[in-house]
Amino acid sequence: MKLCFADLHVHTALSPCADDEMTPPRIVERALAEGLAMIAVCDHNTTGNAAAVQMAAERATVEAAVERADAKAAAGRTAATGTPSGDGLTVIAGMEVTSVEECHVVGLFPDAAAAAAAGAEVTGLLPAAGEGYAEFFGEQHLLAADGTRCGAEPAALATATPLDVGAVVALVHRHGGLAVAAHVDRRSFGVVGQLGVFPAEAGFDAVEVSRHVTAGSPKLAEHAAFGLPLLRSSDSHTLDTLGSARTALRVAAPTFAELALALRGAEGRSVAVA
């Protein structure tokens, strides 16, 4: 088992409220600079940019490997310093779904295809963005792996779905995903703020705390009382906050399957608020 760090709640420029600088290459660059082994792309009610960020991460890994090989060949002796380690970045395809009670639920999916299927189902429930929408809520940029804009999402992503919390969790599970109660410490859009008490019957796999709850904070015990593993994520909408809250993973490798095992505390794996 090895220790690595994850930020499992990051938005791209597809989320209307996120900054335009949240493009696949810049998110990957920032995550690597922050020393993260894993991030999860979780836009509001869509998975439209998740595969592009995954592709950008793969490209960055290949480019780093080529750079290292070149440097090694050029130097002809010791390995060059200053290049990133070859571990790369794992990008989990996720989505932050808004329930009918206006609770935010993060779904983390095993691969891009499962995420896309779940995303299509959720986005399909939303009304069209319509005239003047972007002016009030922001642009919804669909991006390619290199950051090029390839279109705008036509659905109103800032709208709540008609699904209640339990139905959102069930949808995530139906697509093989893990369901996380997003930023439970926050007054707005957290399940506790919206529903008064934690909905134990909904079947969440984990609980997320925001960057405002630090390791060692007495608040943590309160959230741990829900009896689920705790994640700490940045929910970043801008590059400068990416990685500002993180989860320590003790896993064999930074993969979705290992994350799922770590949430269950299987065979020496674990997650912890970092």
Partner: peptide, 8 residues
Amino acid sequence: SDLLSDVL
């Protein structure tokens, strides 16, 4: 109110 924490 629709915020149950607020109702509470």
